[in-house]
Design a protein around this nucleic acid. Structure first.
Length: 450
RNA sequence: GCCCGGGUGGUGUAGUGGCCUAUCAUUGAGCCCUGUCGAGGCUCGGACUCGGGUUCAAAUCCCGACCUGGGCGCCA
């Protein structure tokens, strides 16, 4: 849990040199001289005895001051420290059944490293709630609350689990540019930026670059990075800056990368399942069983039709259609065999070069959580001719994709891949309704600060 | 962009024309209290988003702006 510098820090309290985390101290530390440092979470003044609850990353330590036992000056000073101030306290550990963690600290010295102004923008103890907007405005303080803190520790665990899983399977982690030239894959709007004397954009996804790496012979790559979409959407499931996990694998089909995806999801759940902080979210996590159910686009439409929700073939699923399907299926599932018309130009058509096959269907899939779409992917077009034709038939200019198309002219293996939204995975896993809750400093249509 | 809600102390709220000198909780200031763990008791402080309008009278009704919650669309 810790890796604290043992070196003396200039201009800082000597009390933090041998700082311990609250949960490192136990009743068995009875009699030990320790120091703790953190935020003044709560103060309880009972007159002759005064409790100061210090909060640090690990949890809480109770500091107990008896009138007449500790120095009067220290007693008075401790009572005056405003809540949420940062303090360092040195004292003796005392085993104490009446204390929350079975021990308390009888202080000998206390330094206030930074006194907090009053009144606080929100309550860190959780006694009085605050609306999300208020919390995001004072995010630095919201992050001090147990619930919010643990969301982000879990987020870190999720990302580590993803890396562990993919590294284990021989994937190479890559970093592709976030400043890109005009070529959009279509669909979403891009954020224009000024790039010296030219116009450039923030990337909407690493799609084109990860595919180019297949032509480079990297075979299995992944990237975890921000993506930017300039859509004026206004929902609890969309952000203008999000984090995407993207993979691309050569010499495999969409079926293989679907397996990788469901195994990854199950692994992530299992890595989060035992995390003690889940209790702060009032959540019991069940690891989903794999393989996930697979339904085709046609079957989805059929299911919807049975509930009276008519989707015309070739139309994308509406929000309510997704919700209805989610209610019917009730667990993670794939939708496969999408019409090419509603999938990007790089999705491989089923009928490519094959007479008599179903027309206009792609080897494309979406991974759905009952409440939100999590990922989408496909077998990719690896024929230069077909790709060029697809780009043009989507009304895009092949010229602006030259840098990308070139990699298909000199040896591009068959390949497949997907993109997974990290925030969506987190919010669905933790049963959080608003995507903003799982991003430290979310960017939406209205919010650019903090 | 469209539709429907909502803006009251720092925070979360009650209040739908006069009973508002605006409720309650929490926070803040202070006092009492030697085992709190949502401590308890007492005192005090602190608010009707802004601008117009209707009315004898507006937190309350109407209009506009801004902010905000949800749904839809767009989108992943």
């Amino acid at each position: 849990m810790r890796d604290k510098s043992k070196g003396k820090v200039e201009n800082m309290s000597s009390l933090i040199d041998n700082r311990k985390y609250a949960t490192e101290i136990t009743a068995d530390s009875d009699g030990e001289q320790v120091s703790v440092a953190g935020w003044v979470h709560e103060k309880r003044d009972l007159g002759g005895v005064f409790f100061l609850i210090v909060r640090d990353l690990s949890g809480f330590a109770q500091v107990t001051l008896h009138r007449g036992v500790v120095e009067k000056e220290l007693f008075e000073r401790a009572k005056k420290v405003p809540r949420e101030s940062v303090v360092a306290i040195e004292g003796k550990v005392k085993r104490e059944k009446k204390a929350p963690n079975g021990y308390e600290i009888i202080p000998e010295r206390m330094e206030v490293l930074n006194e907090a102004s009053q009144i606080l923008p929100l309550d860190t103890t959780g006694k009085v709630g605050a609306e999300l907007d208020t919390r995001l405005d004072a995010r630095f303080m919201d992050l001090r609350t147990e619930r919010t803190k643990h969301i982000f520790i879990i987020r870190s665990r999720v990302l580590k689990a993803i890396r562990d899983f993919l590294d284990e399977r021989g994937f190479i982690e890559i970093n592709t540019p976030k400043i890109v030239s005009a070529a959009t894959e279509g669909g979403t709007a891009l954020f224009p930026i000024s790039y010296f004397e030219r116009e450039a954009f923030l990337n909407q996804s690493p799609q084109l670059y990860k595919q180019m790496l297949m032509g480079a012979g990297f075979d299995r790559v992944y990237e975890i990075a921000p993506i930017f979409r300039a859509e004026e959407h206004d929902t609890t499931k969309h952000l203008n800056e999000a984090t995407s996990v993207d993979i691309e694998v050569a010499f495999v089909s969409d079926k293989e990368v679907m397996s990788i995806l469901e195994e990854l999801i199950a692994f992530v759940y299992s890595e989060v399942e035992g995390y003690p902080g889940l209790s702060k979210l009032n959540l019991k996590l069940g690891v989903p069983k794999i393989p996930f159910r697979r339904i085709t686009y046609d079957e989805a439409i059929e299911l919807l039709s049975e509930t009276g929700e008519e989707i015309e073939w070739g139309e994308d699923l509406s929000t309510s259609a997704e919700r209805t399907l989610g209610e019917i299926i009730g667990e993670l599932y794939f939708i496969t065999d999408w019409p090419c018309a509603i999938k990007p130009f790089y999705a491989q058509p089923v009928d490519a070069g094959l007479k008599g096959k179903k027309e206009n269907i792609c080897y494309a899939f979406d991974l759905m959580h009952p409440k939100v779409e999590l990922a989408s992917g496909s077998q990719r077009v690896h024929s230069y001719e077909l790709l060029k034709r697809n780009i043009e038939s989507k009304g895009l200019s092949a010229d602006s994709f030259e840098f990308y198309l070139d990699s298909f002219r000199f040896g591009m293996p068959p390949h497949a891949g997907w993109g997974l939204g990290v925030e969506r995975l987190l919010m669905s896993m933790l049963e959080i309704d608003n995507i903003r809750e799982v991003v430290l400093f979310p960017r939406d249509r209205r919010r650019l600060a903090p």
